[in-house]
């Protein structure tokens, strides 16, 4: 498989930011009240991710190592501002429903994580495809969660009535608590799969999207990559 398609496969399946790495949980919980919001948020993030990966990869030999984080943040924030204005101008309805969460793409750990772990070390073309893959993976994740919440919470998918009228919608699923419940089930499912893999002696995929693993990262407490660390560490302790 050539490098570019490998990157897309990697983002969509192997290191899917929502289902495997569990990054960017704030937007995942907040905007998935409907499938269409999920797609909108996912595609906006993809656009920012592709552009910032491209620019950071181009500048990777110019940016001094000691100030790389502020430099990355400026690059990402500029693209977020552009996307913010484009959405406001061309898709006002989506802009209204996503609201505050569009500028908050800046602090989405997927974007800085990819900049840090991939784009700043690799040439331009693979970085672009890495951005496309990760972004589409994130879009896929948000859309799936959005579909589940919209279906249970209002009986509709993409605004079309799917379930019969006799179905009484469980409205709580499109409200804030529903997000927590759906995510809880998702993480539980993932824990189960990981435990099965670990019991069979297969390699458990790392959850950190920032490359190095969480133990050495100064940002550990504020990042969601450590969510599963407990499980993997526990397994290690059991073996010892």
């Amino acid at each position: 498989m050539n490098k570019c398609t490998e990157r897309i496969f990697n983002g969509l399946v192997k290191e899917n930011p929502t289902f495997v790495l569990m990054l960017g949980m704030c937007p995942t919980l907040a905007v998935t009240t409907s499938a269409i919001n999920g797609i909108g948020m996912g595609l906006s993030t993809t656009a920012v991710l592709v552009m910032s990966n491209m620019l950071i990869s181009m500048l990777r030999k110019i940016i001094p190592d000691s100030v790389r984080m502020p430099a990355f943040i400026v690059v990402v924030a500029s693209f977020v501002t552009i996307v913010d204005f484009l959405l406001e101008g061309f898709v006002p309805s989506l802009y209204d429903s996503l609201g505050l969460y569009i500028p908050l793409i800046v602090v989405n750990c997927i974007i800085l994580g990819r900049a840090e772990s991939y784009a700043s070390k690799n040439p331009v073309l693979p970085s672009i495809f890495d951005g496309i893959g990760m972004g589409l993976g994130f879009t896929l994740g948000l859309t799936c969660i959005g579909i589940v919440r919209e279906l249970i919470g209002s009986g509709m998918v993409f605004g079309f009535q799917i379930l019969p009228d006799s179905y009484v919608p469980i409205t709580i699923f499109i409200l804030a608590p529903g997000a927590f419940f759906v995510l809880a089930c998702l993480v539980a499912l993932q824990n189960k799969i990981k435990r099965n893999l670990a019991n069979k002696g297969k390699k458990v995929p790392e959850t950190a999207g920032c490359g190095e693993g969480c133990a050495s990262c100064g940002n550990r407490g504020a990042c969601s990559g450590h969510m599963f660390l407990d499980v993997t560490e526990e397994k290690k302790n059991e073996k010892e």
Binding site: F181, N191, K192
Partner: peptide
Amino acid sequence: ESFQGTPIVLVTAGLMAI
């Protein structure tokens, strides 16, 4: 077993949100 750790915390957060 599967709900230990983060999942049960998320369920708790959901109940707190309610």
